[in-house]
Amino acid sequence: MSHRNARLTVHGRRLLVDRVRSGRPVAHVAAEMGISRPTAHKWLRRWHCEGESGLIDRSSRPHRTPHRTTAATEARICRLRQDRKLGPARIGPILGLPTSTVHRVLTRHRLNRLSWLDRPTGTVIRRYERDHPGELIHVDVKKLGRIPDGGGHKVLGRQAGRATRNNVGFDYVHSAVDDHSRLAYSEIHPDEKVATCAGFLTRAAAFFHDQGIPRIERVLTDNAWAYRKGLAWKNALADLGATGKLTRPYRPQTNGKVERFNRTLADEWAYLRPYTSNTERTAALADFLHTYNHHRSHTALGGHPPITRVNNPAGQYT
C-alpha cells in the first residue's frame, strides 16, 4: 500500500517508465502526471538499477538512529512503569527525559495504558496475540435481520418499516479472524447448523492459505452446539489438522478479536448506509472485506492493514 501522500502508486510508476521509454521527454511526462522532474528521475533511476522491484514502496525508516533512546534506558522506563505504575510525567523527571520520549517508549512496549496491566505484577494481560499467523483463528457468527425489498425502517421510516419486518428472517454472518494478523474472512448463510459451520471453516482455511497462511493450528469458538458436539465440525478440524478450543462459558471476551470484528462489521458494512434490499447489502460485503484486509488502518497493528502482518515478520509493527 502506497504512502497516503504519495503522488504515484506502483502502477503509476510503471506508466511513468513506459512513457519515458517510448521516447517522450521526462519533463513532459512528469508535468502530465503531476510530479516534479527530480521525482520522475528518481523512479527512472531505481528502475534502471533494480528493474520492477525498484518501483515497489520502501520503508522510510532510517538505516541508523544515533539519538534513539538506549535499550538500557528503555528498560528502566518499562521497569518504573510496571513496578511503580508511574506515568510519563513522573518517569520523565526521574530519568531526565522529556515526557514525550517516555510516552513513545511506553507505546512501543505496549505499556502506555495502565488498564492493560495486571496491577499487582505489572504484566500485560489485556493485549495479547499469537506469535505467527495461523496459530489461532477466532470464529463466530453474527445474526442480522434481513432487509425486505424496497428497504426497511432506515429507508422508509420506523412506522412504515414496521410493516415490512414480518417474516423476513435472519442472515447469519460467519466470520473467522486470524489472531496474529487480524486477517478476516466472512460468509453470509441462512443458518448456523453444523454442516454450514463446517463448510465455512473449510472455505475460510482455503482463503487464509491463498493469502499466505498455509496452516491453521487452533480454532477458537464459543460453546454453541455445532462447535461442541457437531461431527461435521470435528471432521473439518481433523481435515485441517487443527485443534478446536472453546471459550469459557458466558465469557465472550475470550473470543474478543472476532467479537470486535463483528462490531466493525456492523458499523462499516451492515449499518453503514440504508440498503434498499438484502441483496444489495450482501453484495457490499466483498468490498468491505477487501478494504478491511488490504487498506483499512488497524490500531492494534500500528496503523497498518492486516495483510501486512501476513507478509512481514512478527513484531515489525508496534
Rank of each mutant, 00 (worst) to 15 (best):
P120S: 10
G96Y: 01
I91G: 02
P98L: 05
L114C: 07
R84Y: 10
G96P: 02
Q82M: 09
L106N: 00
L106H: 00
L106I: 00
V105P: 00
R113N: 12
P88S: 11
Y128D: 09
L86E: 07
V102F: 04
H103V: 03
D83F: 01
G122V: 11
R84K: 11
R113T: 05
D83Y: 03
R84V: 02
G92V: 14
I94G: 03
P98G: 09
E129T: 15
L86T: 01
P93L: 13
T101Q: 02
P93T: 13
L117H: 06
V102M: 04
K85G: 02
D118F: 12
I125M: 10
G122C: 11
T123I: 14
P98K: 04
G92E: 03
I94T: 11
L117R: 00
R113G: 05
R84S: 12
T121A: 10
L117I: 04
T101A: 07
A89Y: 13
R119H: 13
L117A: 07
L97M: 13
R90Q: 15
H109C: 07
R110T: 03
W116T: 06
T101W: 01
G87M: 04
D83I: 08
R81K: 06
T123H: 14
G92C: 14
L114F: 07
R113C: 13
R90K: 15
S100A: 08
D118T: 02
S115K: 12
R81E: 09
I91K: 11
R84P: 00
S100C: 05
G122D: 12
S100G: 06
R81N: 08
L106E: 00
S100I: 02
L97W: 01
K85H: 12
G122R: 07
G96N: 10
G96R: 04
L95G: 06
I91W: 04
I91F: 08
P88H: 06
P93C: 13
R119V: 14
L114N: 04
G122N: 10
K85Q: 10
P93N: 10
R90I: 05
Q82K: 07
V102T: 00
V105E: 01
R119F: 12
Y128H: 15
L86I: 03
V124R: 15
L86H: 03
P98A: 14
V105D: 00
N112E: 14
T121V: 08
G87V: 03
I125L: 12
E129L: 07
R104C: 05
P120E: 07
T107A: 14
K85M: 14
